[in-house]
Amino acid sequence: MPDDKPSDLESRVKAKAAELGFAACGIARADAAPLAGERLHQWLAEGRHGDMIWMEERRDQRASPAGLWPAVRSVIALGMSYAPKDDPLRLAEQGEVGRISVYAQGADYHDVIKRQLKALGRWLASDAVGVEYLFDLKVFVDTAPVMEKPLAEAAGLGWQGKHTNLVSRTEGSWLFLGAIYTTLELKGDTAGRDLCGSCDACQRACPTDAFPAPYRLDARRCISYLTIEHAGVIPEEFRAGIGNRIYGCDDCLAVCPWNKFAAAANANLAFAPRAELVAPEIADLIALDDAGFRQVFAGSPIKRIGRDKMVRNALIAAGNSGDPALSEGVAALLGDPAPVVRGTAVWALSRLDAARFAAEKAQRRGSENDDGVRVEWDRANLS
């Protein structure tokens, strides 16, 4: 087997990546982000990952590419644009509808990106290098223990901004990331340079103060974590800040000044928003049963949170809406089989209709068998 590789392979990889719909492609050596593992261990030690136990269980594999696959020599980092056409913050004052994070309004990005990563990998193995060059590769989106953002920075795609997400000079904060690990020795690109400067727009935009300091995120306070990853009742201190966000939060991304260079026309068409997910009615969401949930969110990344979490999130939005017309649908959930739904319905009703709440409490509180739901009945704020 020859010791070298085709001399123009790196440029050909980038050209093929662009052909497959990737807006950004760069290369890093497997050991190009040495501090990422140290920062990960510190973050986990501080408990800022909340309920995301899998991050702790596979921390050593996540800490570096070699920790996951010792044979890896190079990382091809890739980014696919999902820049929105409309302002993600435009629905902030429309309490009757729910706000879904831009990335989740279209097709499931895991499926789209993995399909194109595999296509790039097949091309690399069959056409780009040649059968006389023996090498291996693996493709990853974000379901594997891979530090995509530090690796993308090391590969020159951009830099990790103060909101901890990747920022690109050409795509702003709107990049889905993927990676190909390979045993090929590829020439690395120049790492990205932090261009946030003195800007703190993303820090000021966070409704729940999830950033204890620039470049540091406490997931336990993040609306994306709370509405997607957190399994139980959402802590009361965060409910008002969630507003009408029912899945994720775009605020820290949407205010990034670098977004002015991102063009929605360059976004992958697979991520075009589905009409029913752009501004779903809260009244419709709180009425969902399991079958209805699966039907509405088929093919969407939202499907993974399940009906109970979605209805919980929609109930918080209902409670924040100030719309008494929603109280009837909220009250109907006081007997829901899921304690997380019942408990959140108690809180929402207390904010929408004090008289109805008092009547329902008198009827239901004594027979409630879940400690958490009883706590909600007893502490509900009637003001």
Score class of each variant (00 low, 15 high):
C206P: 09
C222W: 04
R204G: 15
A291P: 07
A348S: 06
N313M: 05
L91Q: 11
D284T: 09
S126F: 04
D87G: 05
E10A: 11
D284C: 06
T182A: 11
K5E: 04
R365T: 00
R351T: 00
R216S: 15
G178N: 10
A263L: 09
L89A: 08
K361R: 15
R294K: 14
K114L: 13
A24T: 05
D108P: 07
A36G: 05
G322Y: 03
L195N: 14
L137T: 00
H163N: 15
Q42S: 08
R379K: 10
I27E: 06
F22V: 08
D8A: 12
R122W: 06
R29S: 13
G172Y: 11
G366I: 09
I316L: 07
E376K: 04
L195C: 14
I100Q: 02
C202L: 13
A338G: 01
F261W: 03
S81V: 07
G98W: 02
P257Y: 08
I53D: 13
A17G: 09
G130I: 06
V112N: 01
W258L: 14
A15D: 14
A36E: 03
R62T: 08
G79D: 01
A15K: 14
Q295N: 14
R169A: 14
I113M: 13
A298Q: 12
L35T: 14
D142Y: 02
A125R: 13
E56P: 00
S74E: 01
D284Q: 15
A362P: 00
A66F: 00
E96H: 11
